[in-house]
C-alpha cells in the first residue's frame, strides 16, 4: 500500500539559508505521527510544505497520490482535502463561529447552506461547543477557539490533518481539552501529522515520532523505540530537557 503522505528528499531555502535538508518520511493512512524538535528546527516549515503553504525548491511531496510541488496541481483543491490547525487558531474574527464553519464548506466545497449548517452543528457538538455557534471568536477562550478551529477543519471532511503546535499558545489549563479532541480523532483513524511538544500526547496516541534538528530529520522511529532508546545524541539531549518538567 502506498503512503497517504509521502515526503522524499525535501530541501528548502530562504534566500541563502537552508531551512530543510533532504527530508524524507512516509505517513500511511490512519497513522499518527508526532514531529518534535527544538524551536527553529524546521518542523512547522516541513508541515506547511505538505499542503503547499510554503514552496520548496527540491524534492517531492505527494498527498493521496497528488504531487504538491507540481505547478499543474490545483493547490486550493488539494488543500480543501487536508485539514490544518494553527498555533494561533486563525479563526476569522469577523465571522461568527457558525459562519467560520459554514463559509468554507459553501464557498469551497459548494455545499448547500442547510447541509453546511447541519454539518457545522454536528461538529460543534462533537467538540462540545454547540452552545457557542452564534458567538464570535473573540468571545471564546483560547481552548474553545482551538476546538472550533479543529471543527472547522473537520467540516471539510479531510483525508488527513496537520497540526502546527496546536497547544503552544494556550494557557496550561486549556491544553487538555484540545488534546482530548485530538486523541478522539486519532482513535477514530484520522491520518495526522502533529507538530507538538506534548510528549504525553505522543506516548498515548502516536504510532511514530519524527525528531528534527537544524532542518534535518534526525530520527523517525516507532513511538516506544523513540522514548526508550533514542538513536541519536541530539534526540537524547532534547528528551532529557523536555521531560524534566
Amino acid at each position: 500500500m502506498s503512503a497517504m503522505i509521502d515526503i522524499a528528499g525535501l530541501s528548502k531555502w530562504y534566500g541563502a539559508t537552508q531551512v530543510l535538508k533532504d527530508c524524507s518520511a512516509a505517513i500511511a493512512t490512519a497513522e499518527v505521527v508526532v514531529v518534535c524538535g527544538p524551536s527553529g528546527s524546521g518542523k512547522s516549515t516541513l508541515l506547511k510544505c505538505v499542503n503547499g503553504l510554503e514552496p520548496f525548491q527540491q524534492g517531492r511531496i505527494s498527498v493521496d497520490g497528488v504531487s504538491v510541488g507540481d505547478p499543474k496541481t490545483n493547490l486550493p483543491r488539494l488543500r480543501a482535502r487536508i485539514g490544518m490547525v494553527f498555533q494561533h487558531f486563525e479563526l476569522f474574527p469577523h465571522l461568527s463561529v457558525r459562519r467560520n464553519l459554514t463559509l468554507p464548506q459553501i464557498k469551497v466545497l459548494r455545499r448547500s447552506a442547510d447541509e453546511a449548517n447541519a454539518k457545522a452543528l454536528r461538529l460543534l457538538e462533537r467538540v462540545g461547543l454547540s452552545a457557542y455557534a452564534d458567538k464570535f471568536p473573540g468571545e471564546l477562550s483560547g481552548g474553545q477557539q482551538q476546538r472550533v478551529a479543529i471543527a472547522r477543519s473537520l467540516a471539510m471532511d479531510p483525508i488527513a490533518m496537520l497540526f502546527d503546535e496546536p497547544t503552544s499558545a494556550l494557557d496550561p489549563e486549556m491544553i487538555q481539552e484540545v488534546l482530548d479532541v485530538m486523541v478522539g480523532l486519532a482513535r477514530d483513524g484520522m491520518t495526522m501529522i502533529v507538530v507538538t511538544h506534548e510528549m504525553g500526547f505522543a506516548r498515548k496516541v502516536a504510532h511514530r515520532v519524527v525528531f528534527m534538528d537544524k532542518g534535518e530529520i534526525v530520527e523517525n522511529a516507532p513511538t516506544a523505540d523513540f522514548f526508550e532508546n533514542p538513536g541519536s545524541e541530539r534526540a537524547r539531549l532534547f528528551l532529557s530537557k523536555i521531560l524534566q518538567h
Binding site: 503553504l53 488539494l78 485539514g83
Partner: peptide
C-alpha cells in the same frame, strides 16, 4: 495577520476567496 491568509488557504480557498 499572515496566519489568517494561511488558514484561509489551508481550507482550500483560492486567492479571490
Amino acid at each position: 495577520p499572515r496566519g489568517q491568509v494561511a488558514a484561509a488557504q489551508a481550507l482550500g480557498m483560492t486567492y479571490p476567496m
